[in-house]
Design a protein around this nucleic acid. Structure first.
Lengths: 232, 232
DNA sequence: CGGAACGTTGACATATATCAAAGGGAGTGG
DNA sequence: CCACTCCCTTTGATATATGTCAACGTTCCG
């Protein structure tokens, strides 16, 4: 357990004492693909660290439209905030593949927090980061159209990985490319829309020669223009 | 300064030592109506406590549409999260009336946090509350139409104040009513829309005999139905 | 009295969702 | 290796919600 924690990005820099304390609040859980970790409005008695796997956190409207709030991968944590807000989960969580989870008990964790400023500061930083992201989502949902959101998503992906520049075969130019890590229908839900509309946005950007799409592979033909559409 | 802090809802239960420390990080600022406190992307070196007044925190799209994230009133704090996320404000803030503010210096506050678990826990609770609200906003923006959002807003307002039940003049029934505290155009921006559309939503609910509207005064004619539209 | 700010209403444009259908790729079983 | 199915994606036709633009009425206040 402790070794797993040590490898978690969220726990970088924690001292041995903090890790020992955290272990006391933790247990392990394995979930199959498609399993529900918790439903929105379930009582929240724990939060989660992903050891290995992938989980989507989402909200669902009465008529079935889904809005993904985040996709959590190896080393990510989720549902931390739920522990302090009324005791229920504000969204649902479901695995997208077989996933190993660490479950951190709420009451024990709060207890640890009160005695470990280091862990508390870490949590504050994490909550701030979440706020920042939600902020961004609100901005996009209320102020921009879907093509803009898609452009923004692509630019972000490109900028966060440095592995996307490949030397072109024919000359000495470089190519920017990207392979989607999720299904397009999942991406649609993340961007607050449906697959059909996302597909049309891809088609639009392709038609404008900004990108070219081949399945999950996307090549950026005009980064400046794309960046422009994304709005800086 | 200390007395003002003591009265702030956010500082309820702080001990003298914590208050003394906070005072060291605080200064006072007076802002006229309509004054900008900070713009989105300004460097964030402080957060704010409202002593008296009203401030809107909002985002603006390139073409001028505004999305209000929160309206902060007496005793509220805002921009706490900005201090931990990249050092810039994620939104703009502007006073809606003459406002007395307490400015809390970022670096000093972080310093205090590290030595005061009590204040840290308080901040964690506050950040969680913000996350909860933003979550709700995301849900509404992506999953519900504007009439639903309006119904939800009214139900919320009714439920959070207990002063809205008045005995009817003619018989022994009770009337539920509500007076809007903001301009309708401000409410529109909070709900993620524009005044025209909000006006139509009001008209729709009126036509369905769910509410009746007279300027800023709203009478609830059919609470159950309204609650139904709001979605529980 | 006159103007400004606000709210409402109408006609219209546009973006997005909905519904239906078809294509294509991956996996499975024969 | 082929046929079949399933799931994902794409495309088209259409409906709906919301934004845009313009006009008008009201209230408030100088």
């Amino acid at each position: 357990l402790k070794d797993i924690l040590r490898k978690t990005k969220r726990c970088k820099g924690f001292d041995e004492k903090s890790l020992d304390e955290l272990v006391l609040a933790a247990s392990i859980k394995t979930a199959a693909k498609g399993e529900i970790i918790f439903y929105e409005k379930d009582p929240a008695y724990a939060f989660y660290v992903i050891e290995k796997g992938k989980v989507k956190v989402f909200k669902m409207s009465p008529d079935g439209k889904e809005q993904i709030l985040m996709i959590a991968n190896d080393g990510d944590t989720f549902a931390e905030a739920a522990m302090f807000t009324g005791g229920i989960y504000p969204a649902s969580a479901q695995t997208l593949e077989k996933t190993e989870l660490m479950v951190i008990n709420r009451d024990r964790f709060v207890n640890i927090l009160e005695r470990n400023p280091h862990i508390a500061m870490n949590l504050i930083a994490r909550l701030s980061e979440l706020l920042h992201k939600l902020n961004r989502l609100v901005e996009e949902l209320s102020l921009t159209d879907i093509t803009t959101r898609l452009a923004h998503y692509i630019v972000n992906e490109i900028d966060s990985h440095d592995l996307n520049v490949k030397e072109s075969g024919t000359n000495s130019n470089y190519k920017l490319s990207l392979t989607l890590k999720e299904k397009k229908s999942t991406l649609a839900s993340q961007l607050g829309t449906i697959p059909e509309t996302l597909s049309r946005s891809f088609a639009k950007l392709s038609k404008e020669k900004v990108i070219s799409v081949d399945g999950a592979d996307i090549e950026i033909l005009d980064y400046d223009h794309l960046s422009n559409i994304a709005g800086q």
